[in-house]
Every structure is written in structure tokens, then in C-alpha cells.
Amino acid sequence: MVVPVNTVIETRDLRKTFGPTVALDGLDLTVPEGEVHGFLGPNGAGKSTTIRILLGLTKADSGEARLLGGDPWRDATELHRRVAYVPGDVALWPNLTGGETIDVLARLRGGIDERRRAELIERFELDPTKKARSYSKGNRQKVALVAALASDAPLLILDEPTSGLDPLMERVFQDELRAARERGHSVLLSSHILSEVEHAAERVSIVRAGRIVETGTLTELRHLSRSTVHAVVRTPVGQDISGWPGIEDVVVDEAGTDIRFSVDAEHVGDAVGRLDRLGITNLTCEPASLEDLFLAHYAQAPESVTV
């Protein structure tokens, strides 16, 4: 069963319905080995359902899913030795301490690196002697993160892992994510916190209503979207600039010298050329942020989405 793995996660035409609700509607997701892959989408888009299928907790109605070269449903137990999972809402046994819980979860997976465990507990500033019932949401999240990160599993599946963490701890998490990538580990990072994904992920997939609507590196995705231009020029222009190719959202002040618009990637050069002829005194051109990308995809009225 030893297959050379170069795709850690691969799903094809994954479908899953819960009663009348269509959770996944033909989802195709590919994550190559050694990559931190951002899995973006709003609540209810199908992120968690995908993850649960990849973990063999839920069975897809149809389609194919491969995890580390195996069948996530059939080979669940074997595969889980090489996968560490952090759920978005961590529930712990109230009468076990944080330290005990870390050990239990890690040992059930197949072992723990004691040195890493100690180091992570210190970095995340977790008190391992406290009973889990007295932990805040952030501290419960830390317990699951330490258990996952200390296990040295080659694939991390993280479902909104930083919910409840303070900004300092989020930074620690980002560092650990980078370190994991440097060790050659792969990560599926599901989130709706865009800055988190922007920092950590090399490629992202955007999921909407149960299917992937966009996949690519951030640069590729940015290329697909529009840049925002703000220019101050010497020669006043009339409203006629809205006729320029690829230009939208035009706002010009009364004097006709302060110009704002958005432009698609193909026509940036053309627009700047035209501005140059008007005599530029100030120019800013911002590429689309992940947030713009995201909102652009979700602003379109979703067709018949059952939530």
C-alpha cells in the first residue's frame, strides 16, 4: 500500500446532502505535498463537511476522496496516524487536565514528541495542570493545537484553528505553521479569517455553496481581479473616462483632477498610460486584497443555496 504520495488531498466531484440541504455539490479540491493550503468560505459553504469526509467521519454520497493516497472512509484508522486535526470548536473532557488531554489525544494518534510538547505548552502559555472545565475557549483551542502540532504528523487539518486566540497567540500559531511547512508538512487551513490565510497559505481554494469557485496562488487570484486606482492629475477630465477599456466604479471630483476607479488586470497599463497623458502628480494603485476577492465571489447572488 506504499504509494509515492505527491498529492496529500484530492477530491473529485464530491457530493453530500443532509436531507433537503445540499452541503457539497461537486467539490474538487487538490492539495499537493508540502503546501499550506487555505480553504476559504463563509459559514455553511461546506468547509467542515469536506473536512469531515476527509477524516472519514462522514461518508460522501458520491465522488472520490483521497487522503495521503488512501481512502479516507475505508482506511480511516491507518490514515489518522499521519493526520493531526484541530476542530473549530474544541470540546474537552471537563474532569481531565489540559496536559492529560494533550497526551490522550496525541497517544491515541500514535505518540508525542515530549520536547515539542513542552516547548509548545510554553510558547502558547498554557497551564497544563488546570481541569479542562475551567479553560476559556482560547485555552481549549490551545490544547487541541498543542496536541496536533506536537504529534509530528505529516498532514495537519485545521478547521478555523485560531477562533478564540488572542492576537499574540495567533502570531505564535502563524510561526508554528511556518515551521511545520519548513519541516515539509502539508496543511489544510480552513478559515474565514482572511488575514490569517493571506499570511500563511501559498495557495487558496474558495468554496461557495458546496463547490470550489476559485483555486490558485494569491498572485494568480489577484491577477483575476481588479486593482483600485487613485490618481491626481493636472489636466481636468470629464466623466468621459468611463469609456476607457476595462474601467468601472469611476469617481471624479468637481475640479476633474482627483480620479478614482477600478480596473481589471489586463487594462492597468492602458489606464496608467492615459493618466500619464493628463499629467500625473500623485498615483496609487492597489492590487485586490483577499478580502476583495472573497467579497467579489460572494457578492454574486448565490443560485438556489439552501442554508
Binding site: L55, L57, T77, E78, V83, Y85, P87, A91, L108
Partner: peptide, 15 residues
């Protein structure tokens, strides 16, 4: 129901 079962079954613990 509490979600802890999911955490255990996501480890190498078989059902």
C-alpha cells in the same frame, strides 16, 4: 453530541 467523539475518531482510534 458534545463533539469529543469526533476528536477521538479523528485520531488513529477505530470506531
Amino acid at each position: 453530541r458534545s463533539g469529543r467523539g469526533e476528536e477521538v475518531l479523528a485520531t488513529a482510534t477505530s470506531r
